[in-house]
Nucleic acid binder design. Structure first.
Lengths: 230, 230
DNA sequence: GCAAAAGTGTTCATCATACACCCATGT
DNA sequence: ACATGGGTGTATGATGAACACTTTTGC
């Protein structure tokens, strides 16, 4: 146990969908290395030599997320993505980073502006504003993997609901799907999938209607699986 | 950068299928903590304070795998699974472990016996020989996650081929699927899926036939996607 | 009235499942 | 001869893509 140890950090890939476009939260670096470059938010995992040993990885990720966005644990989807530890990825020394990806619904995304370091954080369009090779460290690779994982997860798990307000219309959910996959869905067919989720208890009709400029649409809400069986 | 740092290890969940049963490679611990208990093979990631910074995570996993089984890089499927870093998971101090899972075809599995520390390593049946709570550290949780991921991956990616000899029959591949999922597949329907893979270029007919005690069966081989397009 | 989005229905191809059935071989 | 597993065919139901269609609102 007397060997040199690496530093361990968490990096966050925080997604949201604004204006039917997939956005990622980036911060502008104020210190070297990569001063002035955009990077993923993140920080060191707190470690203690005492008996408590410090904080857990998920705890560190949630802490960093709250520091950066003000969003508290339990209110956002956060999941471990992958761990990156290639030697040389940080010129200062051996740093291993555990990457997480988070999903923030658009109605909570503006909270980012109210964060402590608001000036240097921004939502950037993944497809238009983040050219390959523009991020610090190996954050391009981390972002690429996160996008890939996000796209793959949409068809498997009910994660699109994490990117939508508490109540939403069929068209709104479809819009999120389209933003994630970069393709258009047939409105009729998407509605049928939607109806199946309704009968499966994944969704429920919510009171009220939404006026979007034309015919008012029904609004629905997502039923999390924990509450679905009771 | 002067804060206390954690130790970082890699742990390996090495699977194979022997006698139509899913097995995992376990080692018996010789030192405290958990002396005498079964554990996943693994070890510390080499870190250096010099400019080279040490070895990469994948490199560490491959090194540990070769030390334990003699299987060299490029000959086995190895993929990062998840990183576990709950404080207290190792009573000696803060240890964060990057878990990997590996798939070894049965024709190479016996090589494990030839390893340097052969006596204390064994293939254990996941369903019969590894009761919950029997492994050291949090290795029960790591194994459980690996099994879950393995089961989920079988239907998505062509990973069953990693658990089968270089050439195999339809029944052999079906047997692996059944061992992984713990269910039986209809022989005719499985054959149809198999035929689709054949026309898709995922599989190719291999020369020779295999005598299994009754009518000789055709043998096939897996075409890796890199070679499929040329 | 007209455009645009909400919402419904129909057709067609694909694929999983269940199951009946023939064929070849070792014992 | 016969049991066993290799190998083939068929009917049925679920699902998804493509697309025509009606309804309801705002302008």
């Amino acid at each position: 146990m007397a060997y040199p140890r690496p530093s361990v950090t968490v990096d966050l890939v925080v997604f949201t969908v604004l204006d039917t476009d997939l956005k990622v939260l980036l911060v502008r670096r104020g210190q070297p290395p990569f001063t002035g470059a955009w990077a993923l938010p993140g920080g060191f995992v707190h470690v203690s030599d005492g008996p408590d040993q410090g904080e857990g990885l998920d705890d560190a990720a949630h802490r960093e997320l709250e520091e950066e966005t003000g969003l508290q644990r339990g209110t956002v989807f956060l999941e471990q993505l992958h761990t990156f530890g290639t030697p040389g990825r940080d010129p200062r020394g051996r740093v291993i980073t555990v990457a997480y990806f988070a999903l923030v619904p658009p109605d909570r995304a503006p909270l980012v502006q109210a964060g402590s370091d608001a000036a240097h954080a921004a939502w950037c369009s993944v497809t238009h504003e983040v050219p390959d090779g523009s991020l610090a460290f190996d954050h391009d690779a981390i972002l690429a993997l996160a996008v890939e994982r996000l796209r793959a997860s949409v068809d498997e798990a009910p994660i699109a609901f994490e990117l939508v307000p508490p109540t939403f219309t069929v068209a709104e959910l479809r819009s999120v799907h389209e933003a994630l996959k970069g393709a258009t869905y047939d409105a009729g067919n998407f509605r049928r999938r939607f109806r199946r989720m309704l009968t499966d208890g994944v969704l429920a009709l919510a009171p009220g209607k939404r006026h979007t400029g034309t015919k008012p649409a029904r609004v629905y809400r997502f039923i999390r699986s924990e509450n679905r069986n009771r």
